[in-house]
Simulated scan of single mutants.
Amino acid sequence: MVEIIKFVITKNFIFPLVFLGILLLIKPPFHIALIIFLQSAVPPITAIPIVTKRLEGNSSVTNQFIVSSYLMLLLSIPVMFSLFARFFNVI
């Protein structure tokens, strides 16, 4: 359970904050910044369990990480995009 919490905090909050900092440094156009930020804020792709299974890993644990990340998405996306909107003018 602790590992899932660490994963969710890292993927749903820390990654977008790091990318927001990078975007503030390089200041790309809004549409480019939005795409990059969106990629950093969304949960991992659902093909990861397939890759995990092919590499003989534990796909049930991978599924737990993905489901947890998607559930936290309900909170993290609005929070992260409100921060994004503070620094980038929404067109």
Rank of each mutant, 00 (worst) to 15 (best):
A85E: 07
S82Q: 07
V67G: 01
S69T: 11
Q64I: 11
V61N: 11
F84Q: 07
S69N: 04
F84V: 08
A85Y: 11
S68W: 03
S82E: 04
Y70D: 02
F84M: 10
F84D: 02
Y70W: 11
S82G: 03
I91Q: 12
S76K: 03
R86P: 02
M80C: 14
Q64M: 09
V79R: 02
L74S: 10
M72T: 12
P78Y: 09
N63V: 12
F65E: 02
F88Q: 10
F65K: 15
M72W: 13
F88L: 06
N89R: 15
F88M: 11
N89Y: 05
N63H: 02
L74I: 15
L73P: 00
V67E: 00
F84I: 02
T62D: 04
V67H: 00
V79L: 15
A85M: 07
I66F: 03
F88H: 11
F87R: 13
V79S: 05
I77E: 03
F81R: 08
V67N: 08
Y70T: 10
M72D: 01
I77V: 13
N63Y: 08
N89T: 15
V79P: 01
F84C: 07
M80K: 12
L73K: 06
P78S: 11
L75D: 05
L83T: 10
F87D: 05
F81I: 10
L71E: 00
V61H: 08
R86H: 11
N63M: 10
L73I: 01
L74K: 01
Y70Q: 03
N63G: 12
I77H: 00
F88I: 13
N89P: 06
L73V: 03
L75R: 12
L73S: 14
R86I: 05
